[in-house]
Amino acid sequence: MQDWASYALSDFLMFSPASYYRRYELANADLWPGQLLLAAAAITLLWALRRPGPRSGQWAALLLAAVWAMVAGLFLHRHYAQINLAADGFALVFLLQALLLLACGLSPTWRQRVLAARPVSTRHPGMLLFVYALLVHPLFGLLADRPWQGVELFGIAPDATALATLGILLTGSLAANWPLLIVPLTWCAISALTYLAMGHVHGIAPLVLAIAALVATLFRNPTRADNATR
């Protein structure tokens, strides 16, 4: 116990920040031009949030399941596991999330709750988090002078995927969706620890934003907000 207490967080980091960020460049290069399909998936989800149809919840869950499975296979297993002995374990957890989402997509009772049944306000915390994950989060790397080839995109990068998923789930029924929140929130915490170990404090932003969006949703007045959309 005394031994463990003497370790610093950075002592557990077995790779350099440069090597970590290169994973994104390599994964992006591997997938190209698959990013176009991911962009289509993101637009579809955005559309489902703003103009939900009777089967939107089902399709959203199935789409998210596919995205989580892809992050597990492409980024975590194929690339991150090359430098992090724990990454294959993370990949299994991401696959578990994919299975949960798949079950939601196939379940006749659950699928409508993944998304809100009514159009989501652009000021809803979940909607803001979703848009942040798609459009703002990828820019952080560029601000840190990382090459654009390494942008962290929804569907490839775990942080962006976790945030986008949380955003969508927060627009639906929290009472029904809470089991689906566990893995994305846990991942945000793991990612924050990784960035702290690398000495890159800005990397805790996804965790802070995820918690802020969750709290804001819990304390939101649904009636007033819903009226605001009309």
């Binding site: 980091l13 350099s16 290169r22």
Partner: peptide, 9 residues
């Protein structure tokens, strides 16, 4: 340690 853990890059 760390420096040679660069995978298939």
């Amino acid at each position: 340690w760390v420096t040679f853990n660069i995978g298939n890059d």
